[in-house]
Amino acid sequence: MAFLTGDAIELSALLARVQSPSRGGVAIFLGQVRDHQDGRAVTRLEYSAYGPMAEAECARIVAEAERRWNVAVALAHRTGSLAIGDLAVAVLAASAHRADAFTACRFVIEEVKRRVPIWKREQYADGTIAWVDSTATLQHA
C-alpha cells in the first residue's frame, strides 16, 4: 500500500477502504494547504520526502494504531507542488464506536508529523522560498 502520492488525494477511495457494516464511526482529519505561515502570505508549497522510509514509517504508524485500537486506518500524504486549499494529508479511522475512531485518528496524524520524513518548502507572496523548519528558517531568494 502506498501512502505517498503525487496525485490529488481521493477521499472517497480512502473512505471506501475503511468503511464496513461493523464500523459505525469514522473520524477524518484533513490537512489542507494554508495561505499563511508565521504571518507571511503563502502562495504555493512543495512537499518532498525520503520515499522508502516515509512509506515504511507510515506503515508502522498505521499498524501501531490498528494494534492499539479496534480500528481500520487509511492514510495518504501528498508530495510535489500544491496550491492553497489542496489536500496535503488525510487520515481516516473507522471503528465500531467514535471513541476509538477519534483517538486513533489523532494518534496517526500526530505520529506522521513527528516521525515521517517529509519536508515542506513554501513559496511566499513576496517571491521568497523557504524550507519550513520549526527551529530556524533558511531563506532563498
Binding site: 520526502a49 522510509m53 500524504h77 494529508v89 515521517v116 517529509i118 519536508w119 515542506k120 527551529t135
Partner: peptide, 23 residues
C-alpha cells in the same frame, strides 16, 4: 530512526533528516 550512538555496519544507508514538516 536511529540514535547517535547506534553502530553503523558495512553497506548501511544513513539518512540525515532536517526538521520534519509533514502533515
Amino acid at each position: 530512526h536511529a540514535s547517535p550512538d547506534d553502530l553503523v555496519a558495512q553497506g548501511d544507508e544513513v539518512a540525515v533528516l532536517p526538521p520534519l514538516a509533514g502533515g
